[in-house]
Design a protein around this nucleic acid. Structure first.
Lengths: 249, 249
DNA sequence: TAAATGTATGCAAAATATTGCATGTTTTGA
DNA sequence: TCAAAACATGCAATATTTTGCATACATTTA
């Protein structure tokens, strides 16, 4: 029996029973206890089980995990997310759009927060399953491959019947002239539906989204409520926005 | 220089430049081009870069990836999934339940298969986004944390309006007396709805699900259509099932 | 289309990894 | 506290993997 095969059997054994000891495995798999110990050590290093005195115990494994290194401008998004979290209270009903800023927000939500969250983004929904007190409702529809969100009439219709306290919208582009715009027609409609379903809307925008205009309107400048961004409050680029009456956090 | 170290250097090189060719790497790392090619092939298999004629190019990193090592009895499930795939044809409308066997099936689906797939499992939906020709529709609802599927009246209602060619159901328990049963009430209702929405139903069952009974009925023994399992066709344990008229693949 | 360049595969030598034992140390639990 | 069990480590025999070469095949490009 090869090493790989043997290690797989150890993993199986550990996942069936909560715990397994080296002497038992040594006998069952017909190798010395030293070999078993070395296997267990290696599997522990790979995070597949936990080595204990006498054998190994199972570790709760995540089926899916996401690679944060892939996210562009991650540091700034973390700062935005942390600011956005201060706006939350227990018991809120929240709608979240897609995008990596909202994904980071989902990850950073306090574990003790009680809330009901509606989303149509697969990664965000996955992330929210790790929060024990958050009830997550996924809004179904046709999946858009690259952005991993659902779109279509089903989503808009569902949102039209919803009442939420707050929604978090990832901003694609923000300008003084056009307000918030998006590059996709479908997404712009969904975001509009989110806005009208919520008492308050919070826009999450990294600084590189400022002063740009895309093809589809989401929200005119005068209707924008709160924008959370990662610019220094005194940065000159923000002055014009503040002067125009925007509530920047 | 060890293999691992060398492969890391190849990855580094590819991520700095967009592309690197084998002859350059052969000279720089002082090994034959054959070795470089073998390294590149292996790294490609692991998804860390993309092999092309003449060398390798960088691959877009996935935001989410799942850990196959976590899946119990993975080898058997792969065999079941491969058998199940032979039942598919282009243009089919398919419903998939949750579970790791279906997840593996989703992963192994031929990249050239054209199909429309309905699912209520987040991991399966994520997996399906990697198939360019598959249109995926996610059935929304309240998310059940540990199994990462949606449940509730919304799901059942949605399924009741659906007509599909085929559905794949992960089996929790199968017995001669009770047929297919499940441990959750909600899940059993959803599976029943899937069955009545589909022309044909395919049950995926690893051998350890045989001869067990759980609390909620999914499908009586006489109504079971096709079961795909990983037992040897001549195994004595299957005899009773075959004698009772079950179509085992 | 032909030459040049890149690729796949089998093979044997060399490199590397695995394993069980011997030895001494640490941990456990009565 | 002390004996028994579990553990870590070095080592040599053994098993496996890696590697470059030779050969034949495929792809590119001038």
């Amino acid at each position: 029996m090869k090493k790989k095969e043997r290690q797989q059997k150890i993993i199986d054994e550990v996942s069936i029973n909560r715990r397994v000891n080296s002497s038992f495995l040594s006998e069952k798999l017909e190798v010395s206890e030293d070999t078993i110990r070395r296997d267990i050590k290696e599997l522990d290093d790979r995070g597949l089980l936990t080595k204990v005195h006498g054998g190994a115990i199972s570790t709760i494994q995540k089926l899916y995990h996401y690679n944060e290194d892939v996210i562009y401008n991650r540091e700034n998004k973390v700062r935005i997310a942390l600011k956005a979290i201060t706006l939350l209270e227990d018991g809120m009903v929240i709608i979240m759009s897609g995008g990596t800023t909202n994904l980071i927000l989902a990850k950073l939500l306090p574990k003790k927060l009680k809330a009901t969250i509606y989303t149509y983004s697969l990664p965000i929904a996955m992330q929210l399953t790790e929060h024990p007190l958050i009830e997550t409702i996924f809004i179904g529809g046709k999946i858009h491959r690259s952005s991993m969100v659902t779109t279509g009439i089903d989503v808009i219709q569902y949102l039209s019947n919803l009442r939420a306290n707050l929604c978090f919208i990832g901003v694609s582009a923000l300008s003084l002239e056009q307000g918030i715009t998006d590059e996709g027609y479908e997404v712009s409609l969904i975001k509009k539906a989110m806005i009208s379903a919520s008492q308050h809307t919070v826009y999450l925008a990294t600084y590189n989204k400022l002063n740009s205009i895309l093809n589809y309107d989401v929200c005119g400048f005068n209707d924008i409520g709160t924008v959370v961004t990662d610019f220094e409050p005194k940065a000159p680029e923000l002055k014009a926005y503040k002067n125009a009456g925007l509530n920047l956090v």
